[in-house]
């Protein structure tokens, strides 16, 4: 009985705090994306059709490590029985991706554009049992500064 109560408390704590954190994070992401919107970022390797001369370029990167709350973890495990979209992890990865790109952009506010954008993910607690899984998303690219 005691174990069930502890479990239920953890579950609801995970749900409410996870939800709150997510909401706040999305608000901040949207605000910052609007601020950084004037910095074009592409995955192409070359500066396309621009007559301006390049002054210098620089490697820039941004990364975010994201972990999952208790409620989402249990929900994903339940989902494992039946298969299908693991929806509970979707927002998590989406947030990490966008945050990583934002951090990369924020590291070069003076740049004119970022080319060759790449995204990579790696699992930090790969294969270890009874550990809360966390994922790192790394965004890197080449910041271009025109003359």
């Amino acid at each position: 009985m005691k174990q069930i109560i502890i479990f239920a408390v953890l579950l609801s704590l995970g749900y409410f705090f996870g939800r709150r954190a997510e909401k706040k994070h999305y608000q901040s992401i949207i605000e910052r994306e609007e601020q950084m919107i004037s910095l074009p970022t592409t995955s192409s390797k070359k500066v396309a059709h621009d007559k301006r001369e390049i002054d210098h370029c620089q490697l820039v990167n941004g990364s975010m490590v994201v972990s999952v709350d208790y409620f989402k973890r249990i929900l994903a495990k339940l989902r494992n029985f039946f298969g299908g979209n693991v929806q509970s992890y979707e927002t998590l990865i989406d947030r990490a991706r966008r945050e990583a790109v934002l951090r990369m952009k924020e590291s070069c506010p003076e740049a004119d554009m970022v080319i060759n954008l790449r995204l990579e993910t790696s699992s930090i607690t790969k294969g270890k049992k009874n550990q809360v899984g966390s994922v790192e998303v790394l965004a890197y690219g080449t910041a271009i500064y025109f003359l």
Partner: peptide
């Protein structure tokens, strides 16, 4: 991101 209700799914 899917906009489903997680509690309902649970």
């Amino acid at each position: 991101v899917s906009h489903d209700q997680p509690v309902r799914e649970f």
